[in-house]
Nucleic acid binder design. Structure first.
Lengths: 224, 224
DNA sequence: CGTCTTCTTGAGCCACTTCAAGGTAAGTGG
DNA sequence: CCACTTACCTTGAAGTGGCTCAAGAAGACG
């Protein structure tokens, strides 16, 4: 945990529209973060805790979420390799974060970051840009939640395919329950809708989490 | 439109949690914005347009929204007197904005703001803080959309009451259709749910948009 | 091989939508 | 001031998409 970790860019698959560049942040040698391992289902931070660090996924996947009074869970977003997270909330986190799979996370002290940002304009811009990108993502997530189950799942599949694959093949890192909690559906509806798409030969299952997009044009059309 | 306009704070009713202070932005004499009138239902900016200005509501109300391919409209947020908007998207707007009622809007060139932010740390911080506040709001809006119709409407009522009234009385500036598009419901469901709440003596109608919160404790409880 | 987790499938139900009609309020011109 | 128009809101009846409850299948792992 005290070991310095060079920033690997080999695993970063950002969408073309993912404007926010964080190179000024984590690329700055002065901001030597520390790479930490987090096992599957281990909490990285909790809602309401002081926001002491900013994080970047080096390997693995992270979910950020909120829990409602009656126990329902809403997943805010999935963070893949290359993604930055932890910029929610000014001084305390507005959501919780957990590793979905065994992950390697780069950790940087927020206070250090802010100090550097006061001198370095590029760092300040990056911090703002990352927050703005997250806002855009959040608004698009909101749009998802007014669509039908099928539309939600199609949009989800296309987004995931764009983020973590160049081919028409996706290897989802998250469970059906995670997908359900992200899309505001039940696990049963997610499963059934997947089956429907497979029956229509629009997608094909190599394994329950390993999916081939057989008709991407049609999928995109369904995503209108 | 060329007339300088002093910033009125008398009409600003921000919630206690509305952290982002914009005094550094619009309070700065150097950033003399221009007050412009916008009539009801007039567009202020459209999705995809270059984000040339940043706006602040002096009087009236504004809705920001997105339109889906099939015509469905999702309202992203309502901006009341004192609220800032237009910070969506880096260089082009990710949503459209319209005045809900006849409004007075303070308009500041984004480029000017960015230039000042390069020298003035407080302005830079304010810009970031406003974006962060909008992110938080957007995430909470996402939470709304997984709840039941009654829960959504209750949450909406409480939020509006907190934002634009000190008493247990709210005068909603928006139509039922606006509320429906904000909450992801149909106008009929919104109307029926309002009627149910009134029948349960939890709220009372003085006029269709003028509502008394008769049992705020119960409302808060329903909002868990 | 057995156990635990994850995923799928079925049957019935319910909250919300859809479609349709009527009521209410505000504005406009005569 | 009143008839007419238009926008907004409410209510009813029927339909349905997704949820709930329940059971079993398919993987993952020791």
């Amino acid at each position: 945990m005290n070991q310095l970790h060079p920033i690997s860019r080999t695993h970063t698959h950002r969408p073309k529209l993912g404007v926010a560049s964080d190179s000024a942040l984590f690329g700055c040698p002065e901001l030597h973060g520390v790479a930490m391992p987090f096992d599957r289902n281990v909490e990285i931070f909790g809602e309401g805790e002081p926001a002491e660090y900013v994080y970047k996924v080096l390997r693995g996947t992270v979910r950020t979420y909120k829990i409602l009074g009656d126990g329902r869970r809403q997943i805010i977003s999935f963070h893949l390799a290359g993604d930055t997270f932890g910029l929610d909330g000014e001084d305390e986190h507005s959501c919780s974060a957990e590793a979905i799979a065994d992950s390697q996370i780069l950790v940087v002290r927020r206070a250090t970051l802010l100090k550097v940002a006061e001198r370095d304009l590029e760092v300040a811009k990056s911090l703002w840009a990352l927050t703005a990108a997250e806002l855009k993502r959040s608004q698009e997530h909101g749009l998802l939640l007014i669509k039908s189950a099928q539309e939600r799942l199609v949009a989800f599949l296309l987004a995931m395919a764009q983020r973590l694959s160049t081919k028409n093949e996706v290897d989802l890192p998250m469970s059906r329950q995670d997908i359900a909690d992200y899309l505001g559906l039940t696990i049963e509806t997610v499963s059934r809708t997947f089956t429907q798409l497979a029956d229509s030969a629009i997608i094909q299952f190599l394994a329950s989490r390993h999916i081939v997009l057989r008709n991407r044009a049609l999928l995109s059309e369904m995503n209108a």
